[in-house]
């Protein structure tokens, strides 16, 4: 059976990808963020999954603006890197895992999640930047296959945080019932607090972010109880992306250890964070390395 080995929560800001693509990670602006990533990257490099299930949102790129699925899963053998309006990122195409996609869709639909199937999908920065956060130098191909799971975080009404946590729990069951001995990592992407437009543009809410970074491990239920209005109010109109972390968190289950986390302001107009959790109830427990969270 498939095993979930770790979960990664990470921001997916385009400029984080651009910093890597254009060799700016040592610049004063970017250095603190990438130094914060380093310990997690080392640990993940030693714990390679066969497949990453990446929970993200499309940003007006691959999905037609007239079709807004609440939850969708890509089924393809390959996902091209999207041109988001300024040329494609020069990173490898993303290779899918159709049998796992099909298994997850069937289990989730049977479990009463109303998944939209996407049989042809380009992937934008929401998916490729987290892959780069995991693996900064992929060479000719990414080190794992990918199943994309998309969440509507852009158009009201977004799914509730509670629904996202439940989807994650069902996703965890679905992954673990896949009848092949593969190792799976789950990525929850987006956030942290940010708002791109309006008079509140530039909003950063460090207090909310720190609370969220803590409770995503210890008390996800309390985060699931927040309304979409509270997310928008507290974390900004784009900070509601954080509900996607709850899908990842739900999939991991209760036996988890925090390996590392980091928090930095800003990446572009966003509070950027990373939190890495090892799943300990179905493998050897991993000792946490260090946390920058409560320094």
């Amino acid at each position: 059976m498939a095993e979930i080995i770790w979960g990664l929560a990470t921001s997916h800001v385009p400029s984080i990808g651009a910093a890597m693509d254009y060799g700016k990670t040592e610049d004063a602006y970017w250095k603190p963020l990438f130094e914060g990533y380093a310990p997690a990257r080392e640990w993940m490099a030693e714990h390679r999954p066969d497949v990453a299930v990446i929970i993200y949102n499309d940003h007006a790129n691959a999905i037609d603006l007239d079709v807004v699925p609440t939850f969708a899963i890509g089924t393809g053998e390959r996902f091209e890197v999207a041109d988001e309006g300024w040329g494609r990122r020069q990173v490898p195409p993303v290779i899918g895992h159709p049998p796992l996609s099909e298994h997850l869709i069937t289990r989730l639909v049977d479990d009463e999640f109303d998944i939209t199937m996407l049989h042809d999908l380009d992937v934008d920065h929401g998916l490729t930047v987290p892959l780069s956060v995991y693996c900064p130098q992929p060479g000719a191909s990414w080190p794992c296959r990918v199943v994309p799971l998309l969440v509507n975080v852009i158009q009201y009404p977004q799914p509730t945080a509670a629904r996202c946590l439940k989807l994650g729990e069902a996703l965890g069951r679905a992954i673990r019932s896949f009848p092949r001995d593969i190792k799976v990592a789950v990525f929850g992407t987006g956030g942290m607090s940010h708002q791109l437009a309006g008079a509140r543009a530039g909003l950063i809410n460090t207090r909310f972010d720190r609370m969220f970074l803590e409770k995503i491990e210890t008390d996800p239920t309390s985060l699931a109880a927040l309304s979409r209005e509270q997310y928008v109010d507290q974390a900004g109109s784009e900070g509601i992306e954080l509900i996607m972390w709850l899908v990842m968190r739900g999939a991991l289950g209760d036996g988890l250890t925090r390996i590392h986390d980091t928090y930095h302001v800003p990446a572009s107009n966003t509070a950027a964070a990373l939190a890495l959790f090892a799943v300990t109830d179905s493998g050897t427990p991993s000792a946490p390395m260090r946390s920058t969270l409560r320094r």
């Binding site: 089924t75 393809g76 053998e77 159709p98 996609s101 099909e102 869709i105 199937m117 049989h119």
Partner: peptide, 10 residues
């Protein structure tokens, strides 16, 4: 007509 069939016959 499942997902794999759909891919094959696309």
């Amino acid at each position: 007509f499942d997902i794999a069939e759909g891919r094959r016959g696309a």
